[in-house]
Write a protein that binds this DNA or RNA. Structure first.
Length: 367
DNA sequence: TAAACGTGGCA
DNA sequence: TTGCCAAGTTT
C-alpha cells in the first residue's frame, strides 16, 4: 500500500463511514432472492452465478436452480447433464462444473457443511479470493474482504486510488484497504453495502453523487474527480471465426448432435456439427467430407443455407452459416455423436448460438 | 501477466 | 454498429 493511500485512510472518519454506509444498506437494499436466506450453500450458489453476470439475468436462474437442487446434498447427487442443462444460457460454464465438483467435495470431506475458514473454502474449485470473502462474510459473518469490480470502483473514488483496476494485481491493494475500513461488527452488511452502492449509486458512468450516503467521505467527489475514476485500461478487440453448421435429420426423424470437448470454449455442451476455416464452398465440402469420413454417414445438404447466426463471445465472434440436410446409410457414430428425437434434443444443454439455430430451424420447417 | 472463458443490456 | 460493462477464476 502506497503512502498516499495510507494517508487518505488515516484521515478518514472510519467509524462514521461504516455507519453511514451500513445504515444506508439496511434502508435501501434491493429485495433479492439470495437475501432471504443465510444458508451458506445458497449464498455460494448466488455468488458463483453473479460472477460477471447481471442481477436481472441471475434471478430466474437462481430460482430454478434452488427449486431443482434445494440442498447441497441434492446438488451433489445431480448428474452432469442436468447440471449443465440448468446453467444453459447463463455462460461461463466452467463455473457450474467447478461448483458441482466443489459441492461434492464439501459433502464428502466436510459432512455437507460449507467451510467457514479462508484456508479451507479457498481450496474449493471455482472459489477465488472474491467468492471466498463473500461467502465467509455474508454467510458466516467473518470480516474478510470481498473485492469485486463494484468495490474497486467505489473505493477508487472514495480513497482516490489511481491504480489500474484491469490489472489483477490491483485487487490486493483494495483488499488491504478493506481490511482497514471493514465494519468488524457487521462484515456481511459492510461488504454487501459496498457492492450495492456500486450497483445503485456509484455506477461506472455518471454516478449519482447527490444521492450518495457516503458523499462526505469521498475524496474524488470533493475534488471533482469521480468521473475520472476508476482507471481501467481497455482490452483488445475480439477475433472473428467463420463456421459452417448443419442440422441433419435421419429418415426416421432423428437429429445428429455432438458433445463439445471437455475443455475450452463451451466445454461439454452439445451442438450441431460444425467446421471452420476456408471459404464458404470449401467449408461446405469439408463438413460433408468430415461427416462421411469420421462417422460414416452419407449426408445430403440443401443447396443454400437457411440461416446465418452471428454470435459474440467475450473474446471472439462466430459467424455460422447453417445448412439443413439429411443423413443416411449405415451410421456408425463416434462416442461424442448422438442421434436424438426432437423431444430428446431439448433435454441437452446447447450454447445460445445453437439454441438460436434450432429455434430458427423449427420455425422454417414448421416443427 | 495476459488470455481464455458467455451472455445480454445499453449508450 | 461497436465497445463497454456485470457480485471473477483458471491456466
Amino acid at each position: 500500500m502506497n503512502e498516499q493511500l495510507q494517508q487518505n485512510l488515516k484521515q478518514m472518519e472510519i467509524s462514521k463511514f461504516q455507519n453511514d454506509l451500513v445504515q444506508w444498506f439496511i434502508r435501501e437494499q434491493r429485495d433479492l432472492p439470495w437475501r432471504k436466506d443465510s444458508d451458506p450453500y445458497k449464498i455460494w450458489v448466488s455468488e458463483i452465478m453473479l460472477q460477471q453476470t447481471r442481477v436481472d439475468t441471475v434471478i430466474p436462474y437462481y430460482e430454478r436452480f434452488l427449486e431443482k437442487f434445494p440442498t447441497i446434498e441434492a446438488f451433489a447427487d445431480a448428474d452432469d447433464e442436468s447440471v449443465l442443462k440448468i446453467w444453459e444460457g447463463l455462460g461461463y460454464y466452467s463455473r457450474v462444473r467447478n461448483l458441482h465438483s466443489a459441492v461434492k467435495e464439501v459433502v464428502s470431506q466436510y459432512n455437507g457443511k460449507v467451510p467457514n475458514t479462508l484456508k479451507d473454502i479457498s481450496k474449493l474449485k471455482g472459489v477465488g479470493p472474491y467468492t471466498a470473502g463473500a461467502v465467509l462474510s455474508i454467510a458466516y459473518g467473518v470480516p474478510e474482504p470481498a473485492v469485486d469490480g463494484n468495490v474497486m470502483r467505489v473505493l477508487s473514488r472514495i480513497l482516490l486510488i489511481y491504480e489500474d483496476i484491469a490489472k489483477q494485481s490491483t485487487r490486493k491493494i483494495f483488499e488491504d484497504a478493506v481490511r482497514e475500513i471493514i465494519d468488524r461488527d457487521h462484515p456481511s452488511y459492510f461488504n454487501q453495502a459496498l457492492m450495492e452502492l456500486g450497483a445503485l449509486i456509484c455506477t461506472p458512468t455518471s454516478p449519482s453523487c447527490l444521492l450518495c450516503p457516503v458523499r462526505e467521505h469521498c475524496i474524488a467527489f470533493s475534488v471533482g474527480a469521480e468521473k475520472d475514476l476508476p482507471i481501467k485500461t481497455r482490452k483488445k478487440s475480439t477475433k472473428h471465426v467463420d463456421l459452417i453448421a448443419a442440422v441433419l435429420k435421419t429418415d426416421n426423424g432423428k437429429y445428429l448432435i455432438r458433445k463439445r470437448p471437455s475443455k475450452g470454449l463451451l466445454a461439454n455442451l452439445w451442438e450441431f456439427p460444425m467446421v471452420e476455416d476456408g471459404n464458404f464452398m470449401q467449408m461446405r465440402t469439408a463438413l460433408t467430407n468430415y461427416l462421411e469420413k469420421e462417422i460414416k454417414v452419407n449426408t445430403q445438404l440443401e443447396t443454400g443455407t437457411f440461416t446465418k447466426v452471428d454470435h459474440v463471445f467475450s473474446h471472439l465472434t462466430w459467424a455460422i452459416n447453417v445448412f439443413a440436410g439429411t443423413v443416411s446409410g449405415d451410421i456408425k457414430l463416434e462416442d461424442n455423436y448422438l442421434l436424438v428425437t426432437k423431444e430428446e434434443l431439448e433435454e441437452y444443454a446447447f450454447p445460445v448460438s445453437h439454441q438460436t439455430i434450432w429455434k430458427t430451424y423449427k420455425e422454417k420447417y414448421h416443427l
